[in-house]
Design a protein around this nucleic acid. Structure first.
Lengths: 375, 375
DNA sequence: ATAATCGATGAAATCGATTTCATGAGCCTT
DNA sequence: AAGGCTCATGAAATCGATTTCATCGATTAT
C-alpha cells in the first residue's frame, strides 16, 4: 500500500508538502502542487484514515445503532442518515441490535473503539447502563425514535402520542368500544407514548380502559402473533386491535388468519408505521405514518451540526408530525374485501428449481452465451 | 479518552505489558495480569482500532457494497453478511451505490482509505474501471449476485439462468406465446442471465423471440414503470411480463394499474426475488426466489476464509439454487382476484395528524404521564 | 541599505497501539 | 559453581499521517 512517503519521494518533496496539498492547506507553490498531484495520480495514492484520525482525533465517521435493519422503517431512517452524512463527508457505521441489550452493549463498545465522532441511537432501553458509557466519554449522541430518560441529549422522534391518538380516535369514531393494543416494550418511549395516546383517546371518548386489553411485547412480528393468540384465548371482548408498529401488525395478521378471523369483517386493525412495498400494491392497512427518511436526515444534521460546533445551545427535541392514512382495514371506506384473502392451505407452492447447466455455472467468462439468439 | 499509557501508569507496568494482557499474549505473571485488568476496568479502557490497525495493517473490517439497501433483497443479504462477520469479530462498512457508477467509484475510494481487510461487492458494471483499483491493491474481494468479467474472484450468485428459465417455462406451460421481459442493465450479469434463461425457455418451446419484447433498464421501480408504458404504447402483442427483479415488478404493477389493466385477467406477471412483508400478506406474485440470507452468509464466509488464509486455492464460484414460488399472478391457481384491487383514485386518504401537546412534547422527562389512568 | 515581513519548505515530534530486542531473575543441568 | 534456559518485563522503533517550529530566500517598509 503506497504511503505519503512514497508520494513525497516521487515528487521530490517532503511529506509535509504532500500533506499540505492533500488538505489544501495553502502555502504551496503551484509548480510544486502540480508535481505532488501528478505523483498522487501516478501512484493511485489514497491516505489512510487510520493514520490520519490517530493524529487528528477525528474519524469523520458516525455510528447508527438501530434495532432491526430488516424493517423498512429503519432502512428508510438509515437512508436519511446516510444521505446527510455523505453530504458532509462522513461515513456511517451501521449497527444492528435486534432489540437485544447484549448486542447493544457490544456495539457501544465497538463504537467507542472505533472512536466515531458521533452516535445516532434508537436505544433499546432508555436507562440502560451501557448508554452511560457514551455519556462518560461525552461522545456527541442523538437519540432517534426513542427518548433517553435522564440524559438530556438531542432527540428526534415521530409524534407517537398524537399518532396513536388519531388512530384510536378513528376507531372510536367508527363505533369501536373494545379496542386492544399490542405495543412494544415499556423501556422504549415510543411504545409508551403509543399506549398513552391510546389511553387519552379512550378517555376523551369516555371509555374506561381495560387493563387486560393492553399488551406489550417486543417490536417483532413473532411477538405480535403470540400476543394476539393470547388475546383471543382469554375470551376477551374486543372489536379492534391497535398494533404498536408494522412488524407487530404483520404478526397480528398472521394470527388472525390462522384463527380464521377476517379483517375488517370480524376485527378491525390499525398500526403504526407504513410498509412501503406492501401498501403500494395493497393499500389495506390503516396506519399512522412517521416521516422516517426525514427523521434520519434531521438526526444526522443535528449531530453534524454539533460536531461542526455551530450549535452550542441546549439539546434539541425534535418531534416530527405523523399522518393518518385511512385505508381499508377498519372497513371505514367500504369493505372491498377481507384479509386474509386466501385459504391458508392453498396459498403457496414452493418448487425447487433444477439447475440447468451445473458445470457451466462454475465457469468464468460467458459459458451461456453460445446457443441463444439475440444476445 | 484514556489510552494504553494511562492504564500502564495506573497498573504500575509498561505499555507493553498492558498490550500483552489485552491480546492474551502470554508471558504475564497472574498477579500482574490482575493488576492490569483491574486498571482496565477502572478506567473503562477500550483500545483504539485506529492505532491498532495502523500498526497491525489489519482493520478487522469488511465492506459490503450494494446497489440499494432499501430493497429487501439487499437488506437480507446484508443481514447474512453481518451475522457471519460478527461471528468472526469483524465489523461491516455498509455502502449504498444506488446503481450509480459515480457513487460506486466514491465508495471504492472510501473502502481503500479505510483499508478494510476485504470487500463484498455487487458491482454496478463488471468491467468498470474503478474495480481495477481493488485488484491493483490485491484487496480480497468477493462478488455477490453479479459476476465480474475478466477478474477471477470468488463469486456468490443465485442461479438466475435456471430461475428465469423456470419462470418463463411456467408461463409457456400456461399457454403464453408473447412474453415480454423487463430486465436490469446489461452490465449486470444477473440481468444478462435472466434474459438468457428467458431466451432458452422460448427456444425450448419453439417460440421465436421478438427483440421488441426484450427491454432493459435499471433495477428500479421507476424504470419498470417507464418501460411498461413503452411496451404498451408501442402496441405490441404480449400476454405476460417477466420482471427482472422485485423493484421492476412493482413498477410494472403501477403502470398496468394506471392503464386500467388487471393481473392476471389482462396480463400475467412473474418476477425475480421475493418481497418479504408483501408476499406474506398477499401471496400474489409468482416469483423465482433466491436464498438471499444464505448468499450473504456464504459470501462473508468465503471472504473471511481467504483472510484467515485457510483457503489458498482457486477462486470459488458458488451458485445457489432458486425456488419457483407459484402464486396467483398468472392465474394458474384460479383467479381469486385481479390486481390492482382498488380503483386508483379512491385508494388512500392521507390526513395530517394534529400535534396534541406541542409544548409538552419538547420537554424532557415524562410530561405525558399525568392525566391518564393505568400507566 | 537595513530591518521586518512573508511565503515556501522541511525536520522532528506526535497520535496510540504493537513488535523487536535487551535485560535480569530464577531454575536446571552437568 | 558456571553456563544455559525460560520467563517476565520494559525501552525503543514503528505504522502513516498531521502539527509545530525553524530556516531561508525574496519582497516590502523605513
Amino acid at each position: 500500500m503506497t504511503t505519503i512517503a512514497d508520494v513525497a519521494r516521487r515528487a521530490g518533496v517532503s511529506k509535509v508538502t504532500v500533506s499540505r496539498v492533500i488538505n489544501d492547506a495553502g502555502n504551496v507553490r503551484p509548480a510544486t502542487r502540480d508535481r505532488v498531484e501528478r505523483a498522487i495520480q501516478e501512484l493511485h495514492y489514497l491516505p489512510s484514515v487510520a493514520a490520519r484520525s490517530l493524529r487528528n482525533k477525528r474519524t469523520n465517521a458516525l455510528a447508527l445503532i438501530v434495532p432491526d435493519i430488516t424493517n423498512p422503517f429503519w432502512t428508510t431512517i438509515a437512508r436519511g442518515v446516510e444521505d446527510a452524512a455523505h453530504e458532509w463527508g462522513y461515513s456511517v457505521l451501521l449497527c444492528n441490535t435486534d432489540e437485544n441489550p447484549e448486542k447493544q452493549r457490544h456495539y457501544i463498545d465497538v463504537v467507542i473503539r472505533q472512536r466515531v465522532d458521533g452516535v445516532i441511537i434508537a436505544p433499546y432501553s432508555s436507562d440502560a447502563d451501557h448508554l452511560k458509557r457514551l455519556r462518560e466519554r461525552s461522545i456527541p449522541t442523538v437519540a432517534i425514535d426513542r427518548r433517553i430518560d435522564g440524559w438530556d441529549v438531542d432527540t428526534v422522534t415521530g409524534d407517537s402520542f398524537s399518532g396513536a391518538y388519531a388512530l384510536v380516535r378513528h376507531l372510536v369514531d367508527l363505533g369501536h368500544r373494545w379496542i386492544a393494543v399490542i405495543s412494544g416494550p415499556q423501556t422504549a418511549s415510543s411504545a409508551q407514548d403509543r399506549v398513552l395516546g391510546y389511553l387519552y383517546a379512550l378517555e376523551k371518548a369516555g371509555i374506561k380502559p381495560d387493563e387486560r386489553l393492553i399488551l406489550r411485547g417486543e417490536f417483532r412480528s413473532t411477538d405480535g402473533e403470540a400476543l394476539t393468540y393470547e388475546l383471543l384465548d382469554q375470551g376477551l371482548q374486543f372489536t379492534a386491535i391497535f398494533a404498536g408498529n408494522n412488524a407487530i401488525a404483520m404478526g397480528v395478521l398472521t394470527a388472525l388468519g390462522n384463527r380464521g378471523l377476517h379483517i375488517p369483517k370480524d376485527i378491525s386493525l390499525v398500526c403504526f408505521d407504513d410498509i412501503p412495498y406492501l401498501s403500494h400494491i395493497l393499500p389495506f392497512l390503516t396506519a399512522a405514518v412517521q416521516p422516517a427518511y426525514e427523521m434520519g436526515l434531521q438526526a444526522a444534521q443535528l449531530l453534524l451540526g454539533r460536531l461542526g460546533g455551530t450549535a452550542q445551545d441546549t439539546p434539541a427535541r425534535i418531534v416530527l408530525p405523523t399522518s393518518l392514512v385511512v385505508r381499508y382495514s377498519c372497513g371505514s371506506r367500504g369493505q372491498q374485501f377481507s384479509l386474509p384473502l386466501f385459504e391458508k392451505s392453498s396459498s403457496e407452492d414452493k418448487l425447487p428449481v433444477q439447475t440447468l447447466f451445473p458445470e457451466e455455472q462454475h465457469y468464468a467468462g460467458e459459458p451461456l452465451a453460445g446457443p441463444f439468439p439475440l444476445v
